[in-house]
Amino acid sequence: MKKIGLLGILLTALVLNTGCLSKDEESHVYQGVCLALTDGGKTLVLANSQPKLNPIKGDKATFDLSKAKVGLAPDVGNIIRVAYFAEKDKNVAIKVMNVSKQDLRKK
């Protein structure tokens, strides 16, 4: 029973911890066709190919990749999925997935 109690305490601590993530830090996901990768690979421009699902409206969106974990390199024309934080003046990407090149279902 001690083990269960310990797990309960750990769980509560985690709930409190994750509850501390403020709304400002909520991440979003955007998916679109790669239009350009500029600034030595630090800026990614995606066309809005799924306007109903994507949280950023407009024809295209720009992401700052300087802090992002990038998988298979995006090429123009590839479908790219980005997880990002929306800051005041820019979208800071956390992770970049190349959906076109990385079809996990075939693995």
Partner: peptide
């Protein structure tokens, strides 16, 4: 590296 982004939309 393969990076997976979960589609939360």
């Amino acid at each position: 590296d393969l990076v997976v982004v979960a589609d939360t939309r």
